[in-house]
Amino acid sequence: MKLTMDGRQVSFNEGQTLLDVATANGIYIPTLCWHPRTGPASRCRVCVVEVEGMRGLQTSCSVAARAGMVVRTDTADVKSARRMTVQNILFSGHHNCIACEATGRCELQDVAYRLGIREYPTIDEPKEPMDTSSDLIVMNPNKCIVCGRCVAACNDVVVNQVLTFAHRGYKTKVVCDTAVPMAESTCVQCGECVQLCPTAAITERKSMGMGREWELQKVNTTCPYCGVGCQMTLYVDKAKNRIARVKGREGIAPNEGSLCVKGRFAYDFPSSDKRLTKPLIKKNGEHVEVSWDEALDYTAGRLRGIKDKHGPDAYVAIACARSTNENAYAMQKFARAVIGTNSIDHCART
């Protein structure tokens, strides 16, 4: 099926929206409330386009493409409507990009930039208090654009059903349960709302001041906790050798972007100063730090001695279900090929 978009004949599939068609054809339409995992919400009205024969501007995220449609995404009306919408959003909140945690990854900032908004009026009304009750997540209603992505994430994606809209109109606010502080709510701190928030209305607390989006190196890896094997991106401060932030990888199996409280927030143990950093040998009942050569020579000597005296089956080993396949493979090959026993197991049974 085909339709006309900005004067071009483009083809599309049944079920695609105008936004889908534009994206597939490299045509930029700004969005704020739409997200691949929460779908169209038609709240922000930033994605409006003109459709011939339809009255008024249409939200492209929610209008289904039909054969023969004539769509314009770049008319003066469209541009001015989008600009006015974004200006109103900026005007009704407190968006201070210099101090903002989201600078560099803020969708509102990007959309304003792409629309050519160079300045916008601000109002100096009293700021609403932030919810800093949780150790892991900060909610700042002054940066909330009421796009609803967090509410949809909480209710429809992870189905934890904590976040909700309260009140209405200009007073609409995202709250936990019955507007209680997050730490006292039923929130399990999965952080799906953090990942889907387009601004810094909901952010990771531990990541504050830990580095800008563009300064941090992104490393794709697999979560170290349960057996689901969630795919995640680590945001790494190379100079300080620490992880600053963790994000689920959108659109990638098996987790499709979602994480849980451990995967998203329990990431700083590698940088703990309690890590073991040198080999230890027990001498006179005390562990003392030794060089690798001493530890390896000593261990090899003892293992060879036991093998020679008692045979290979006097050696047993437990591999680790937390470590990599490569280490597990090395562990069983060591038992079998170096020592000569099959007594290798791991905690699959626990």
């Binding site: 697999t222 979560c223 170290p224 906790y225 349960c226 057996g227 094997g229 591999a319 680790c320 279900a321 937390r322 470590s323 990599t324 396949n325 597990a328 493979y329 562990m331 069983q332 290798i344 197991d345 791991h346 905690c347 699959a348």
Partner: peptide, 12 residues
């Protein structure tokens, strides 16, 4: 566990 499947697969 994250790699209990793998540790089994690897022959541990």
């Amino acid at each position: 566990q994250n790699n209990v499947q793998g540790a089994c697969d690897m022959g541990a």
